[in-house]
Amino acid sequence: MTRGRFGAWAAAGLGAVYFLLPLIATFEFSLRMRRGQYSFDAYAAVFASGGFQASFLYSTGLALATIVVAAALVVPTAYFVRLRLPHLAGVVEFITLLPLVIPAIVLVFGYIRLYGSSSFLPLTSTSLGADALLMFGYVGLGLPYMYRSVDTALQAIDARTLTEAAESQGAGSLRILFQVILPNIRSGVLSGAFLTFAIVIGEFTFASLLDRPAFGPYLQRIGASRAYEPAALAVIAFALTWACLGLIQLVGGAPQASTRR
């Protein structure tokens, strides 16, 4: 109708082209493995490869551990800061923003120096120790999102009133946290969990430099050595990200952006 509306359509159209074209191109490319015809051969090859299965399983397990540890750290902290230690709010917010400020490559460099084989706490010298180190790194990566999700949920349920109601019924702190607060902020914890999963599952920098057999370094190796499998893996990764973000909307969280790659 008006010039403004024409401009809006043009912007939206160009945006759609820019964002959809790589998806279409990647999908098309992933189907080209068999000469002369489209096929899902690349996907079959990916799923059949031991490297894919092992690394994906490893990263999934690590992501789950990350989520559990992150929730265990964040929920009590957010809860107590909101209710009993409000003077710590500034410090805690600063800490939760640190992972957005410190580049992952810088942080992992610090890990390697601090927890390397010749340090006072040589986590990297055992496989389990290195796994734990990677997991704690991922807890850090997900911290800003997990904290914000949980804190928003706590605010929404009016945790103070709930706590006082539970206390007046004679419940103790632990019981309140686990039986009153946690069930009510489930959607916040889940939002944080899915976003953490989306960030962690294909993470490259930490996993590669800590030499863990994770999905991210596997992706990078395939990209350097194969032609069609990478496209298939990109499609799979995109679908995974979409699924995680879709689940967040399903449990009632708002879409968020991670700002660390």
Binding site: P22, A25, F204, G216, A234, T241, R261
Partner: peptide, 13 residues
Amino acid sequence: NFAGVPLAFAFMA
């Protein structure tokens, strides 16, 4: 949130 290695693949393709 779709970044990192898979994004590189998508733009290669």
